[in-house]
Amino acid sequence: MNDFIPSHPKIVVIMMIIMKRERKRRELASHYATQTPPPSHAGFIPACTWDMKQLLAWIRGNILKERPELFMQGDTVRPGILVLINDADWELMGELEYQLQDQDNVVFISTLHGG
């Protein structure tokens, strides 16, 4: 994951993933700090302009340990998982096309039963 540390830190996405399917609430908060090494569970995003689609693909590749189908369906999240960007519905932000900004807070909440 260290490869993902941005050389020009422009974007730090504070990403909290509330994914009950993973049996625990995993909070991935990545605070950018050049001095300290990143915690092993933190998700660092390359410094570039990413949209949600790329973020999801990245999550799938880097964070999901098992059964990605419980979180993803095609290249978007599974129906029933609510996505909030800065506490606002991502449907208002253009969903997959939304361009991530610095300090954005992306939250995934599963509304499905049992997880």
Binding site: R23, I109, G115
Partner: peptide, 27 residues
């Protein structure tokens, strides 16, 4: 709807506890 509930509890910090059930992580 479950969307309203999820959004409300997130936005207004309603405390909840996740407890895995019988169907957690099942296909």
């Amino acid at each position: 709807s479950s969307k309203e509930i999820a959004a409300y509890s997130r936005m207004f910090h309603v405390p909840s506890v996740f407890i895995s059930g019988l169907d957690t992580k099942t296909h």
